[in-house]
Computed example of a mutant assay.
Amino acid sequence: MSGVTMWTGREAGLLRKAMRKTGKAFADLVGVNPRQIPRWEGRGETIELGLDNQAALDTLLAQADPLVQQRFAALLTERAAAEHDERAEELLRNDPHTRRHPVDGKVMTLVEEGIYLSGPANRSVWLDSFMIDVYPTTNEDYAKFVLATGHRPPQHWPGGNCPVTLATHPVVWVTWHDATAYARWAGKALPTARQWEKAARGPRGRIYPWGNEPTAAKANVAEAGIDATTPVSRYQSGVSPYGVFDMCGNVWEWCSTEETAGSSRYELKGSAFTSPFERCTPSLQNAANATMKDNDTGFRCAAAA
């Protein structure tokens, strides 16, 4: 499995539990005083472990039995999944414009009809109302689709199974055809490029979902140095005026709009963890062949209001 970016007391405690070790036995393996272990676990994420301990825990995890690694990954993912669900339930409770879709269970929000400022020139465009997924389609969401339809799983799933460590990350390695097949199964559609842009910028032509300030810390872009996808509910300070997450960074998202009629090239929006921040403005135009798939390309769905 991939390593831990930063070991805190929380991750150390989860590894101990996954290894089924007492505090003393675990301390012996890490090479620290046994009194350190309850201190680490008691302080949780508020304590960042020293570099020597970080390296020791990296080695311990890398050399652990695969079953231990699997248990650790499951424990690590549990809270991320719970936080995602908790955030989704909070949206449903507090925002009268949101609802849970009956097929794939994703939270969707209403984008009301009206004019919005579109493109780099902020041209006034009218759109009818529509619903859009609050979060990109995750690996966990896509797994439901694969199980229900027998559609081929993405190439990064080991043995064709959704990795527990990536359950709440956006699904990637999907073509436009894969994304469209999911949308049809769910009774939805891929958003048009204009729908996507309005959901990201709001009606008044914000440059970014959060406003006009170029704040790279509000999105998973290349400058963040993460070099991988992140959970879809992570960047809460970067949400759009409609409460939609990850409209900048994390993964490029397929739209239903062709670049030019009959070209078999479709627009992509939002930029990705591989993109420099300057590429993440929602008005930016990008497109790719419908058969393209990559580790930084995913999608979300829209539906009639």
Rank of each mutant, 00 (worst) to 15 (best):
T77R: 12
T229C: 14
E11M: 11
E258C: 05
A80H: 09
G31F: 00
S256Y: 08
T230E: 14
P153C: 01
A186N: 04
T175Q: 07
A228V: 00
A167R: 14
A304W: 00
A193W: 01
R99L: 11
G114L: 07
P158L: 10
H101T: 09
M1P: 15
D52N: 12
A12K: 09
Y116E: 07
L49T: 04
A217R: 15
T168I: 05
E213Y: 07
M292C: 12
A228L: 11
L60I: 11
G187V: 00
G114N: 06
G249C: 02
G243F: 02
R87G: 00
L14Q: 15
P163M: 00
N212Y: 00
R100V: 05
E113M: 06
A12Y: 00
P241N: 01
G31V: 08
L60T: 05
W7C: 08
R100C: 12
A224H: 04
P153W: 01
A179D: 11
P209V: 05
N212M: 03
A82C: 08
C248N: 08
A189T: 08
D28Q: 15
H84W: 10
D178A: 13
I115A: 09
C248V: 05
F273S: 15
E253C: 12
L110D: 02
L127N: 06
R194W: 01
P203L: 01
K144P: 05
D52Q: 10
V146P: 06
A73P: 11
A82P: 06
Y182P: 06
T274E: 06
R206Q: 15
F245A: 06
S233C: 14
S233K: 14
T5M: 14
F130Q: 03
N122C: 02
T77E: 14
V232N: 10
F145H: 04
Q63M: 14
C280A: 13
M292H: 11
A222M: 04
S129Y: 02
W7L: 15
S233T: 00
W252Y: 13
A224S: 13
L117Q: 09
V111F: 05
